[in-house]
Design a protein around this nucleic acid. Structure first.
Lengths: 242, 242
DNA sequence: ATGCTATGTAAACAGTTGGCGACTTAGGCC
DNA sequence: GGCCTAAGTCGCCAACTGTTTACATAGCAT
């Protein structure tokens, strides 16, 4: 018995994925960014042309696949099918599979880094993390953090990843009082990185461990425990702690 | 320019991997389980036969590859080359790539579950986790936790993964006072799963994020912060916490 | 030695994958 | 209309991947 690659059909909480053999259902219509195929695209209809839209569709589909299955496990054909788009267009718009992944990563980093309220506090960073752990208003899980964990092996993508990690670690550490070259506060960097680990660990186990309580927890459910963790790690304790 | 699969050369902290083109250096000698090729295997020497040994070599090499690169990204030829063994032997001894992965997973679970001191305490679980986060006496990083995060997509392997997660979550939760079907202690399950996330998050970021402080931290360095986290999550706080 | 089996080797196979080049066509502009 | 370019399609390929098959041989019992 050969364990063939699973062409799984995702039925996420809010329809993360539509069925596998999208091609039959979609083409030749206009690629749609989200949810069910729009009513308007008749099966025999005319393929409309909209470069920006197809680009977005590809990005969206790629984000989901990459985040969920990892880089190596997803094929460009998977992505194209999900997006309801011809495979060759991936290379047209993103040069290569690596290019597409890098585009996903870049967009994810932008999303994660958007709210920079100048003065960081541990509390604010905690809320940002919470927002990216839990469900979006649209009902979809945020994929940015997850994407950051899916390495492609490509050098330039890897650099983006590492820079992002370092950037957030430093922001978090700084919010907790860490200052560069200050040996006195050096331990805070490690603690900030551990705090970061918590977030990534949660997002990973939420999506891949099958732990019921964790994967179904809402932002509100996580707020309490996660607040305790951040406080224990980064808030100066009453009794001095090396 | 085609982004070819990187046949990287691992030079781990304690020589996790030896160079990529092992075949030239190793064959035809006896496959060796660890470290540098033993002095005794002359290049023109006779290939010795030792099924148990080659099995172990394959397992070891597979563990490293799977844990480090993920299931999909590692090829059976990679593993065979690392182990200094013919590719076909993977299928002989483990039926398939999936079988080999499952064997790795099973062994990892055994290692993780070894010390069951009957009565679990949060403190003991913390120490167990610490032991699997930090370096082994041999100088190698423990790969068990990491392997648990690398899904193969195979149904039976996935079941092992999930059962292991659930098992440890319940052990940890129980150690903190959780009792099945006791709504009063239900919140402890979520907290235990978050505590688990911390461990997995750390092991993941230690190996893939390039965060210096974290990846070079010793068990002793982690003990303090991690102890704080576990305490904040699982030790009953003086002021009641829902 | 003779045979037998466990072990190991080499080559090939069938399916998949990412990428590319030649082609078609929609839609705007003159 | 005629033309042009961007957008999309189609078929192919070379490389790679997991697996199998046919073959070689070491070690051992007889």
């Amino acid at each position: 018995m050969i364990a063939r690659k699973s062409k799984h059909v995702y039925i996420g909480s809010a329809g993360l994925y539509r069925g596998g053999e999208r091609k039959d259902a979609m083409t030749p219509g206009m690629p749609t960014i989200d949810a069910a195929p729009s009513e308007s695209d008749a099966p025999g209809g005319v393929r409309q042309r909209d470069a920006a839209n197809t680009r977005q569709c590809l990005l969206q589909a790629a984000r989901r696949r990459f985040a969920h299955d990892g880089y190596a496990a997803t094929t460009v054909r998977d992505i194209a099918t999900d997006a309801g788009v011809n495979v060759a267009l991936i290379n047209r718009y993103f040069t290569s599979k690596e290019g597409l992944f890098e585009a996903c990563l870049t967009r994810a980093v932008e999303e994660l880094d958007r709210p920079i309220p100048e003065s960081d506090t541990v509390e604010l960073m905690l809320q940002t993390m919470l927002r990216h752990l839990a469900e979006l208003p649209s009902g979809e899980h945020p994929l940015g953090l997850l994407l950051l964990l899916r390495s492609s092996g490509d050098e330039s993508a890897e650099r983006i990843r590492r820079n992002t990690f370092r950037h957030f670690a430093e922001r978090l550490a700084a919010a907790a009082g860490w200052r560069p070259d200050d040996a006195e506060t050096e331990h805070l960097m490690l603690r900030a990185q551990i705090a970061l680990s918590v977030g990534f660990g949660i997002v990973l186990l939420r999506t891949t461990s099958g732990l019921e309580a964790l994967s179904s927890a809402s932002a509100g459910d996580l707020a309490g425990p996660l607040g305790d963790v951040f406080a224990a790690l980064l808030e100066p304790a009453p009794d001095a702690r090396p």
